[in-house]
Design a protein around this nucleic acid. Sequence first.
DNA 1: CTACTCCTATTCCATTTTGGACTAATGTTT
DNA 2: AAACATTAGTCCAAAATGGAATAGGAGTAG
Lengths: 316, 316
Amino acid sequence: MTRPHLPTTTGLRVVVALAQHGTVSAAAQALNLTQSAVSKQLKALEDLVGLALFTRTSRGLAPTEAGVIYIAQARVALGALETAAARVAGLRSSRPALRLHVLPILGDRWFMPRFSRFVEAHPDIEVQFSTFAASDTIAEADVVFRFGDGQWPGWQADYFLGREVLLVGSPQFIARGGGIAAPEDAWRFPILEHRQTPLHWSDFATSHGIGEVRAERLVRLGYYSLVIRAAIAGQGLALVPRSLILDELASGQLVNPAGLGYMSRNCYWLTTPLDRPRSADLATFCEWALAEARETESASRPAPPAQTPRAASQRS
Amino acid sequence: MTRPHLPTTTGLRVVVALAQHGTVSAAAQALNLTQSAVSKQLKALEDLVGLALFTRTSRGLAPTEAGVIYIAQARVALGALETAAARVAGLRSSRPALRLHVLPILGDRWFMPRFSRFVEAHPDIEVQFSTFAASDTIAEADVVFRFGDGQWPGWQADYFLGREVLLVGSPQFIARGGGIAAPEDAWRFPILEHRQTPLHWSDFATSHGIGEVRAERLVRLGYYSLVIRAAIAGQGLALVPRSLILDELASGQLVNPAGLGYMSRNCYWLTTPLDRPRSADLATFCEWALAEARETESASRPAPPAQTPRAASQRS
DNA sequence: CTACTCCTATTCCATTTTGGACTAATGTTT
DNA sequence: AAACATTAGTCCAAAATGGAATAGGAGTAG
């Protein structure tokens, strides 16, 4: 009705990616677009909406109040489309598609670079991704990657990634702050926290036997990608699963002072529903993913960890 | 991730409109597009999905199983975008936009042709429409048009339209079936029912004191537009609010045999939430809408009805 | 059986939109 | 001040969108 002037789906993906990556260039990379395309899509969408959705700073973009609202709905819309695709894909062939739900950070940092290998090795298995789907849709997935302690009633959980959590920061930033030799030194710096995983810092403290978290400043961010970005930009110290920042560590953008870190109970798990029979395709995929993950974790590690992460699985 | 090949928003609007109107041409009209554009959008979307979303019959289109699934999600997605627009519109100006939620049939048949008049008369009032929004979003609207008996706890309900329900059908179809002189004659024909308003036929029967509904065949359709279309196509008799089919009655596409019909308790209401103060804009709009509706109801009526619909309002 | 009507699919084409490469502009950091 | 981020804007080629017109199919009335 009344020329609805609807946004483009690309526009929606753009704002969501922008919120997640905090910068036009990074979002562009994540979307396989150029910086200029993203910039223009954003402008177009803002013109359509009639309000700025992001405030521009020299370091990147941050959603405005309107942006937060709009982005949330954009995510709902994209989730609906993912759900539609996933459900319909199930109908399409006699061999139903494998439905995966991945967290954004894993999608960007782990799957995107690796998944083509799986497709090459198993061209006959059709895989349907989702990252925005609503929780009721997630329940339909064949594989759900989750973050937590491995306890999800009704789901088998196999350890996937991220048990080894490192204290990291930008090298210049740490040096300027006087360096870090012991765990307590961390409290002299602002610390960065991922909103969905707030336990990391207290776990860090207790695992080093240094009591309370008493950092000078705490910055809470909504996405792991933002935490990593902020750490690189020298805005604070972060606790990040090592496997997510192999590149940054290798290139020296981030350093792990004094090898501080700990083995976290909370990490990424590959979970599969227990109430459905495991198809052969599902088994194939899980095997592949777990093997690749093991390789990721052992690769480019200076020294193997004291305890090797072991696969766990339990029902409840 | 992995080129999501997302659909176009136009594509989504197209499939939703198609489901609602049952025919490419009708959907095109509703969307202000040409038949060819709609046809192509549908094809593009089906190619994308990899499955037919509609089965083509010579009389129009009907959703396939996949179509039903996809369309439902498309509606969710469009609803999210409407919600986004409505919420953000509230932020935009000091004078907040008026948020309306209309039922599809009213949008097509009543608002679309009339609303420009309101805009002309009140160019300074910004109005935000939604037709697909989810129920939690509907709760935020300033005006919700509903179908029912006028009892919605927490909402003031003013009678809007559609109290006068007529028995109608295609003239040739009725003639071929032997004509209709008395209410009971209706049972010799297949009857059409709107899925969301199943009470009409039994109300019709009781209001004429002819006992049970015992038609030879019952066709249940999801949208009023489909009911009207099916009636015109001679697929059965329908009970339709007179105000929705003024054109069809005038042009003779539909006839109302023996003036049969009844005054329904269930009709369209203009409802406004009681828990929020009434803005001046809101009052202006309601006044306009109710006046226009009264005019619609009285216009082109051969004889005024025995009892005039009267505005009602109650709280609970 | 034939003309007529109502539908969809398709072809052609002008127009618009999209997105990439480049350049400009601006602010931060060293 | 220079180097380095970042976003915004211009230009252009390629793709898409959508309208007009056409073709074809399936009922329907006589």
